[in-house]
Design a binder for these strands. Structure first.
Lengths: 194, 194
DNA sequence: TCTAGCTATGTCAATAGTGACATAATCACT
DNA sequence: AGTGATTATGTCACTATTGACATAGCTAGA
């Protein structure tokens, strides 16, 4: 039970429920779209975690009957859940371990690759991240237009959403830059130096 | 035993063994230092994985007897291992799932935080990433000085190391920028807008 | 009526990763 | 002789995550 504490996934769920009450199904779609660019989870992870959170007293649920679609369990964060989340937010994240990135791992062995295939890979990834950057830019524009000054009101969830999005934008910008640089080196290279 | 394929961790290990023969212990320290900024693994994961790689015929080992310290098993990549690694390198990484980042997750719930504690967290993280950026910059300078033109020879492991490091540098630069921006918003904010 | 698709909730086996435990050789120092 | 650090290899229990399987209600269109 361990009242008042949970896993990182638990805090991700609480972070969403702190804004609005949601079903497991809705949480799963939020995890794909909204929060998905820095934390992901499948419904197979979410449903059991909701049970644990409820056992720990951090969320409660009630069944909502629907006529046009199947009934659902809507989960709501408790005072205890708010308290746990608020405490966790300012605790320093553990260790200096950086993120795992498979493309960088591939780059580390890139000297073994067929040059044409390597260029194709990085041009392709450049495009993937450029698309994602554009998508984030669209969301940013929407937030600025729809939310106005709220995005700078640091005690509002809108600021928090905007801040998280900024990390995504900066990250994708850097990723595009890197992919392009690698591709250019490979194109220029053709095996020889300068 | 599924000849010629392995897990991502397996390719990380092969990527190191493609450059030099190493013991499990040495691999573990490389995983902390060299490759550690984009892929990490404990020795408890590495030793079993080496066994699997050997069963799959991708690596072999021989025992090296040492007088000044305990004996060790030195692992060497096989032709089959080189082939598997070379193929994997240019395969597009799966899915569009971005990296998990706990600090961004915290940012998403930052509206619930004590403002002073939130500023402290992001100033602290800014410093952490600034330090890491400086460290990467030192390594970059060392590579450029020691390796010269080799870092642009795209069929050399030195280029591959340099390219992977570039991702780390760009990433940390962006991370520092973001932390600073968040901290500034929080300091300026004090709960009100603009 | 049948089908496809979306909403909705769950379980389960397998893989990936962490942290603790366990053992042992060797060296430097006290 | 004892202590602590480093090198060296391994196991084990637990947690985290994925992908497949399973079920079912409801709607819209062929």
């Amino acid at each position: 039970m361990a009242e008042g504490s949970t896993t990182t996934l638990g805090y991700a769920i609480l972070g969403l429920l702190a804004r609005e009450a949601l079903s497991g199904y809705d949480l799963a779609s939020r995890m794909r779209a909204r929060v998905g660019f820095f934390w992901q989870a499948r419904h197979s992870q979410i449903y059991p975690e909701l049970t644990r959170l409820e056992e720990g007293g951090l969320v409660t649920h009630h069944v909502v009957e629907q006529s046009d679609r199947p009934d659902k369990k809507v989960y709501r964060i408790t005072d205890s859940g708010f308290a746990a989340l608020s405490e966790w937010v300012t605790e320093p994240p553990p260790g200096p371990r950086a993120a795992r990135d498979e493309l960088v791992l591939k780059a580390y062995s890139l000297w073994l690759a067929e040059p044409e295939l390597a260029v194709a890979l990085f041009r392709d990834q450049e495009e993937v991240h450029r698309e994602r950057l554009l998508e984030y830019g669209r969301i940013e524009g929407w937030m600025e237009k729809e939310w106005g000054e709220d995005i700078l009101r640091t005690d509002s969830p809108r600021f928090a959403s905007y801040a998280a999005l900024q990390r995504g934008i900066i990250n994708e910008r850097g990723y595009v830059e890197w992919c392009r640089w690698v591709a250019e080196q490979l194109e220029r290279g053709k095996g020889g130096a300068g």
